[in-house]
Each structure stands twice: as C-alpha cells, then as structure tokens.
Design a protein around this nucleic acid. Structure first.
Lengths: 144, 144
DNA sequence: TTAGATGCAAAGGGTTTGCAACGTC
DNA sequence: GACGTTGCAAACCCTTTGCATCTAA
C-alpha cells in the first residue's frame, strides 16, 4: 500500500486498489482533505463536501475516510477532544494538538522532525511506525 | 498540579486538591491503576474495581478517571481501538500500541526515551508537553 | 452486466449527565 | 451540617451498519 503513496507523490496520480471504484464522493473528499491545512473532523468534512454534493450522507463520508485511511491516502488522528481528525497528508510528520479547542496543526519546523528508527524490535513487539503529538494552547485560543 | 506528582513520588502520599474528597471509590480506582502494568480501558477498570466495590457504577468510574487525569495522577491514552486507555503512571514515557488488539504497553527501553524539548514556542502555539506512540503488532497477537 | 458504492435511517458503543441519596470533612 | 460524591438510568454523541438503489468499470 506504500506503493500508492509513492505513485501519488511521484506521478501526481492516485492508484486506487483494483476492485475499488473512484466515485465522485471519494474524489471530492480526498481533494478537500488535500486542499486544507487544518485537520478536519468527519463532521466538518461532511459539511464542506455537502456544498459540492448536497446529497452526500454521513455514512458515505465515514466509509470513504475509512477506505482512504486503509489505503494510506490519508491519516487518522485521535484527538483529545473526542473526535477523530483527518489529515490529507499521509507523510511522516508531527502534530500540534490544542488542549483547549482540540484543533490539530502540522508542525513543519525542523526541530520537530522525527528522529526515530523504524521496524525496531522491542520487548513487547515489532514497531512499524510511530507518531508524536505535541500538546499546548494554540495561538487562536490564546488570543481569545 | 505538578506538585501532586512530585509529592506523591517523594513522600509516597497523595495530595488531593482541597475541596475534593478521598472516597473509597477514588482510592481503589487509583490503587488499581497503579498496580497494573497494562493500560486498561474504563470498562476493564469498572469490572476489576467492582470486585472490591460491587455497588460501583460506570458513572463513578468515569467521573473519577476524569478527576484523576485532571489532577495529573493518571494519564489518558487515546488508542486506535476507539477506547480510551488509562495509565496509572503519569511520568513521561512512551507507549507501544498494538494495531491488532488495541492494547497499550509501556516502552521502558532507553532507545525510546524522549529527546524532546519542552515549552518551546512554535508557529502555531507554545508546547506544554508531547507524547509519542509506537505502533506495531504485539507479541501476544503475533503468536495467535 | 455486476459488484462496489451510495443514501437513508436506525442501531451501536463508549462516555456524560441529572437527580436524589449518601458520606466525607 | 454542608457540599462533594455516588448509583442509577437516561441521554449524548460520534461512528457503524443493513438494505434497497445506483453507478463505475
């Protein structure tokens, strides 16, 4: 499935798994996620996509998010606000989670680049990947 | 609130915030969490604590977990399995999350000690703390 | 043509909450 | 005695699912 990611990045095309179909709904959800720097919840995605596809349902949004995550097109982020947030950029990077509003931001700064080794064996199991979240209060909340 | 943690560690006593009360339920939930190396969900905690306090309810468990987390006696961990897991050790350490069963393990190994700086300012806000999760399949699942 | 995807609505499952009774300080 | 806490049950909220219909390949 990593192939998908590499192909998408190199050729600017998306290779969906054979057997699956590229519907309007799927295309628009993925495009929306790739076009925003925020990390919206399913509800926000639903509302935004509904502007282009008024008939879309929550079930379709959730099913597509699940599909896109399963095939490494997007990232699923569990936030402390109780909602799952989604990230259109599946590449390896860190996040800043606001403890007040629950918003999730990317941390582009080199200081927060990963320094972890992958596929290491540990006492409890073999590591496939890791995720680091930085917590604090975002500027938006601080100024209110 | 960090004071609580320090006091607890140095003097082996718990300083609960003034105004709050140390009930049997609260004591037993905290003791249970401190006595296990697993990172149980609210449901498991409920079932275990029920053995000592057959009358306890889910509401009480959740209210106490929320209280203990709020005052830095325990850690709340959002797992990919959809359940919140709880850690009786609020000190700074990393976790291994099993992608199959959702179980959460401590990573004691020095290789996974934190190397992050705290209270750093970033473009999106000031960092208070950070958490790193390592994902993989645990030995328990691999052998089944 | 046909199996995968959608829309709708109902169900699921973890967590929170209102309220009267209880128990700690 | 006052007020924080409990037990119970209902409510909440996010997410999943069954089913008939639709549609991409």
């Amino acid at each position: 499935m990593i192939i998908n990611k590499i192909m998408a990045e190199k050729n600017k095309i998306d290779i969906f798994p054979s057997g699956s179909r590229l519907t309007n709904q799927r295309r628009i959800i993925l495009d929306y996620l790739r076009g925003v720097y925020t990390h919206p919840t399913a509800e926000i995605i639903y509302k935004e996509v509904k502007k282009k596809l008024p008939q879309i349902s929550f079930g379709t949004v959730y099913r597509n998010l699940s599909f896109l995550k399963e095939h490494d097109f997007i990232l699923e982020l569990k936030s402390a606000d109780g909602c799952t947030h989604y990230d259109g950029d599946p590449s390896d990077h860190c996040h800043f989670v606001c403890m007040q509003c629950g918003r999730v931001y990317d941390l582009e700064d080199k200081r927060f680049k990963k320094r972890h080794t992958y596929c290491e064996k540990t006492a409890v199991g073999k590591i496939c990947y890791c995720r680091t979240n930085y917590y604090g209060v975002c500027k938006n909340c601080k100024n209110n």
